[in-house]
């Protein structure tokens, strides 16, 4: 979700998602990030800085930049 047109770099914040850098507009919530990444409505669980955040709290969780975020799902396994 990097490189949004018309948004200056200083209006963006950077977080780490699944080990890679992602930028989001300042003021974004976790809900906004999940939506921008295309994960809305998908079976996911999200961890921010080591804490699991339930889906109901995505919108109220505002990003400040620098967060370490993991977004996971189920895959086949034994």
């Amino acid at each position: 979700m990097s490189g949004g047109h018309g948004i200056d770099a200083q209006d963006m914040l950077t977080v780490t998602v699944n080990g890679g850098a992602e930028s989001a507009p300042v003021g974004s919530s976790l809900h906004d990030l999940v939506e921008a990444l295309g994960f809305a409505g998908r079976p996911i669980a999200v961890e921010v800085n080591g804490d699991v955040i339930p889906r109901a709290r995505f919108a109220g969780r505002h990003l400040v930049g620098g967060e370490q975020i993991e977004i996971v799902t189920f895959v086949g396994g034994g």
């Binding site: 998602v17 699944n18 080990g19 890679g20 990444l37 295309g38 994960f39 998908r42 079976p43 996911i44 669980a45 993991e70 977004i71 996971v72 799902t73 189920f74 895959v75 086949g76 396994g77 034994g78």
Partner: peptide, 18 residues
């Protein structure tokens, strides 16, 4: 049993085991 893994940041239209 199922495993927990990072969701792919590309090809998110792909199938999910669920």
């Amino acid at each position: 049993t199922v495993a927990v893994r990072r969701e792919r940041l590309v090809n998110t239209a792909g199938e999910n085991i669920l």
